[in-house]
Design a protein around this nucleic acid. Structure first.
Lengths: 389, 389
DNA sequence: TATAACATTGAAACCGGTTTCCGTCAAGTC
DNA sequence: GACTTGACGGAAACCGGTTTCAATGTTATA
């Protein structure tokens, strides 16, 4: 039925030239209604779909965007990709997945090889870590690109960028513990080289100061965002004499919080009765650990969707979704958990879409009113680890 | 530097025709050593990479394969894709990810749209569930395809297929419990419409019979492969009077086992002291739940790798990996867990690569000695849920 | 030494679209 | 009524490769 028809065949069947068929298929404006209908009838009858490859060659635009990700086994990645996939499914674009292994020392070469193929019309780089400077070169050379990246200070970052407001997130976590009456609140920080780690820490400090407390250096620990460092910090903290324990701990990500849960289990420490715990991220797992983790939720799938939306606008400004937008991201928070929208003192003027927009200057060719930085809001998810049953 | 060079430019720079450059780049045999070197020098100097799109148009083969998956938030999917991605990274192919939502009633249309674009030269369909009959039509129409699918009986299944030996897996789980001395062993079965559920059940029965026990209908429960049905079965079981409880339970997948853990926690039932538990799958989460789950590990990433290897062989028989194969799949089993290779009574003649090969007849155009079905081995991962500390 | 067979390489056709260029025709202007 | 203008649509060039075909130079065969 739909066997290898070409635009030429359609032209012949409709009794027109192939240029006309092409024009009809691409919604060229100066086309008479009659021609359009004549062509479309044949197109529909034979169920004709133009060859993407030829289209790419001739038009200079492939309808492909690349998505560069760390290994999919990183907790946040599948959620983000879900957002990307659900958005892209409603467009005429497809996604080429480049899952790269940062441990491979040649990963910059891998990226070069990928991009030199010029197969994709744009790139969404998810948490590119130390690859960022290298990617920026490609961006500055003209490759449309959006990063989901919370590791670089957004000031003057030239590339369009999607992330969350980590400062308000840190504030939310700490404020929650303060509201429950805790006063000796420890913080396990992420690596200082990451901007998000600093921001979460600042939110923590700000919440403390708001109630007249000063951050206590004895209650600040340094982690590496992985479970192992969480375990290490937990052992260090719980090895102190009981009177020097904190009443509650805000851990800068869920992975490290898992380490705390493990050590607590080992040592028979009850959470939250002995020590309350709040994490950051709300990974899919976090509602299934024991006790379920109170945490600050990052809207990962929404971040993916926003980022790909932005990228498609850069790649193809006339791009319109063929179908209406589906229902908003529903998240995976299980029934029973309370969700608190961001209400920190840092809440900036929203642009109506529920997220905060910051616009910076950029010299890159694909600017949309300057480099757009989209910052989404976090929300607190309260579960058993911070609230005694 | 590598700005939009064409094969024509290279030809001019090397003082040869573009046909010659093309031949060199494609390893055409009848090429003089001198010409080859002359061209390659220029290619390397200018870092030339031929345009994939043009290549696709002219050669009739895009170097793209599609990967059709259920939502990435399904537990096994990221692991499988890791295997696919790691393999594909070492080839000249790229993967186009089609993550489809089975709940969308129009998902067969989505598949049709995707495939009618003819963008991909082959398709890897991961756990396509009820999409299988529809996909088979495309396969029979000539689209190279491999399925990772444990839901269809392999007999006479026309399409190349990768899965695990579920029967031996069920045997391993049950045998392990028997070896620990348990005799009253319950089984929570998956949906009967899935072949894997039946096979796991048969393995269970066989292990029991081997020690002279007959499966007890009272100890057989019917689940749906999700946590909710696990909870339901758990409540049903634990609502019985204590003397009618089993000593141990083999649950047909980890998700349902999580439901058991939750209900046990709720009702203060100690696992494994009161009841021992073994799951199936070894999801990434399963080592982090409390207590860590003993389970039958499916080599998901290896399945992905095998499947994509098979697919590429179908798409491009002359396909050779540019680099040597990297180290074998290392899995994610944490240190301390014991791994038992499959040694069930069903172990078939291995083909040297450590997996079992079954060859069936097929009428599809892309046969390699008939439809290849690759069955990988499962392995038991022993953790605290079955072994009292 | 003449000739057939083979190895090597360039010219040109082709893949299936998009886009430029140009001719035609009808409506609008003076 | 002649001329300008713009809408419309066909012919042909083009995108950047692969592949067929034919020409050339070499080597083997008789």
């Amino acid at each position: 039925m739909d066997e290898k028809l070409t635009i030429q065949d359609i032209a012949r069947l409709a009794g027109v030239s192939k240029s006309s068929v092409s024009r009809v298929l691409n919604n060229y404006p100066a086309i008479s209604q009659e021609l359009r209908e004549r062509v479309m009838r044949v197109v529909r009858e034979y169920n004709f779909v133009p060859n993407v490859t030829a289209r790419g060659l001739a038009g200079g635009k492939t309808r492909l965007v690349g998505v560069l990700t760390p290994p999919l086994t990183w907790p946040a990645i599948p959620e983000m990709l879900r957002g990307v996939a659900e958005y892209i499914e409603r467009t005429s674009y497809e996604m080429v997945l480049y899952s790269i292994n940062f441990e491979n020392p040649t990963h910059t070469d891998v990226v070069d090889r990928i991009l030199s193929l010029r197969m994709v019309s744009g790139l969404l780089a998810i948490l590119p870590c130390d690859l960022t400077p290298h990617l920026l070169k490609h961006f500055e050379r003209g490759l449309p690109m959006v990063m989901i990246n919370d590791q670089e200070p957004p000031e003057h970052f030239p590339c369009p960028w999607v992330g969350v407001d980590n400062r308000t997130g840190g504030y939310q976590a700490t404020r929650h513990l303060l509201d429950l009456g805790y006063r000796r609140i420890a913080h396990v920080m992420g690596p200082k080289r990451y901007y998000c780690a600093q921001e979460r820490f600042e939110g923590y400090c700000q919440a403390l100061r708001e109630v007249g407390l000063e951050p206590d250096p004895e209650l600040l620990l340094q982690g590496e965002f992985d479970p192992a460092s969480g375990r290490r910090c937990a052992r260090e903290l719980f090895a102190r004499e009981r009177t020097r324990w904190p009443e509650a701990i805000f851990v800068a990500n869920d992975q490290m919080a898992y380490g705390f849960l493990e050590v607590a289990e080992e040592q028979g420490i009850q959470i939250p009765q002995d020590v309350a715990l709040v994490g950051f991220d709300d990974n899919l797992v976090s509602s299934h650990v024991r006790p379920p983790l109170t945490t600050v939720r990052q809207p990962f799938s929404q971040m993916g969707a926003k980022a790909i939306e932005l990228l498609l606008k850069m790649v193809d400004p006339d791009h319109v979704l063929p179908r209406a937008r589906a229902a908003e991201d529903e998240g995976h928070t299980e029934a029973g958990a309370r969700m608190t929208p961001a209400t920190g003192p840092l809440a900036a003027a929203a642009d109506g879409s529920g997220h905060q927009l910051r616009v910076h200057e950029t010299s890159a060719p694909y600017r949309l009113d300057g480099a757009i930085h989209i910052q989404l809001d976090t929300s607190l998810v309260v579960r058993a680890s911070s609230v005694p049953a």
